[in-house]
């Protein structure tokens, strides 16, 4: 039982970070449920049908998602703002529809036969990805990304190749989501396309929005609370979804910039400051 919580929380933290990584360059992605699905299915096929070891399969699945992420982001990034968000929603929907129509992976019925993932895989990944994001947060690259997120036109006029950075972030986010999806699939043992639809993507974005979008801790805290809160509310029986929904609404009203809204300056010395919208 505890293992399930660790697994679920860890996967959700990784997914939240996958959205956060894309958000670093200013794009809000609702495609990450789709990237996760690609990871789950590609790794599952590799382990079940080709006998590839799990960790290698997860990395390969991440690579496929990386290429897919860049491939879809390239045309998608011609759009901006709300339109880009809608395009990412479309990406999530098409991945699901595509998986449902591929008989090789069981179509709408889903795919099974995977095994071998333990919560410790995911804990290790959370530590690795968290450490990488922490190093990034103190780097010049973070500062350059912040400039892109603040005002991409000005960033470009200073010499920053905005499209290149945005594509890199989409690729990296898709990679992390897919690796998380790989371990998820090999823990849950059975996957179906409808698990990874738009709703899954919306939840992942919600973790980041509720936690705070300006630092790596927000996504971690948001994902943890949102994963564990429903479990703590078991006593509420049939009212649980209602109370959970209300909790989200109240959090958004009380802390519209997230639970941890601060941004840490990349110059190191300066103190933390709350970021106002």
């Amino acid at each position: 039982m505890i293992q399930d919580y660790v697994m679920q929380t860890g996967v959700n933290i990784l997914l939240a970070w996958s959205v956060y990584i894309i958000l670093l360059s200013g794009s809000l992605s609702f495609a990450n449920g789709g990237f996760m699905a690609i990871g789950a299915y590609v790794s599952a096929v590799l382990t079940v049908k080709f006998g590839v070891p799990l960790i290698l399969a997860a990395v390969l699945a991440g690579g496929v998602a990386f290429l897919f992420g860049i491939g879809v982001a390239f045309p998608a990034l011609r759009t901006r703002g709300l339109y880009l968000i809608l395009v990412t929603v479309g990406i999530a929907a098409s991945v699901r529809a595509m998986l449902e129509s591929i008989d090789y992976v069981g179509g709408i019925q889903g795919f099974s036969g995977m095994s071998g993932a333990s919560p410790w895989h995911v804990v290790a990944l959370v530590v690795i990805v968290g450490a990488a994001l922490w190093l990034l947060s103190r780097s010049r690259l973070q500062r350059i990304l912040d400039a892109v997120r603040e005002d991409e036109l000005v960033a470009a006029s200073m010499g920053i190749n905005v499209l290149y950075l945005k594509l890199a972030c989409f690729g990296a986010g898709a990679f992390i989501a897919a690796v998380a999806g790989s371990f998820y699939a090999h823990y849950i043992l059975f996957v179906r396309p409808d698990e990874f639809g738009i709703l899954a993507s919306v939840y992942i974005v919600l973790y980041v929005v509720l936690g705070g979008m300006n630092n790596l801790w927000g996504a971690l805290v948001g994902a943890t609370i949102m994963t564990l809160a429903p479990e703590l509310m078991r006593g509420l029986a049939q009212w649980r979804p209602t109370v959970f929904g209300l909790l989200i609404v109240v959090l958004l009203l009380v802390r519209p910039n997230g639970l941890l809204p601060f941004r840490i300056p990349t110059t190191g010395r300066a103190k933390r400051r709350a970021v106002k919208p």
Binding site: R140, R143, I144, D146, A147, E150, D151, V154, M158, N214, R263, P265, T266, T267, A270, V275, K276
Partner: peptide
């Protein structure tokens, strides 16, 4: 870049 510090605006 309004949410970055004055120094960061120059360093970037």
């Amino acid at each position: 870049f309004g949410r970055m510090t004055v120094l960061e605006n120059v360093l970037v």
